[in-house]
Amino acid sequence: MRFLVVDDSTTMRRIIINTLNKAGYQDCGEAANGRAGLERLAESGADLVITDWNMPEMGGIEFIRAIRANAATRELPVLMVTTNAAKDDIVEALKAGISSYIVKPFTPDTIKQKIEALLAR
């Protein structure tokens, strides 16, 4: 099971990857923005993507739209982890094509539950 964690904060990437590692998922790639995330996907693929919303160069919404526009990644599960939690934000993210949503701050259990639910689909 390969994960790709996309966030401009190295701290947040490490928190998420630590959580994944503790949950038994060891194959975790990372990227600092959506553009780098697309490059990683093209190079090595992923079974699930976890992405932030606000990032330089290419933000999370644009990144997800690019994933959905590509036949090779159209069905890829994408979990968004963000502080943008207003109703309008969630509607915008759903329209862009996210599979699920986690609001920062979050507990490790929240991430594990969301991932397990996505992988069970």
Partner: peptide
């Protein structure tokens, strides 16, 4: 880390 803490505080307040 402090940038992310500040971001989460402001984001939670915004929500």
């Amino acid at each position: 880390a402090i940038g992310e803490i500040t971001n989460m505080i402001a984001g939670t307040l915004r929500t």
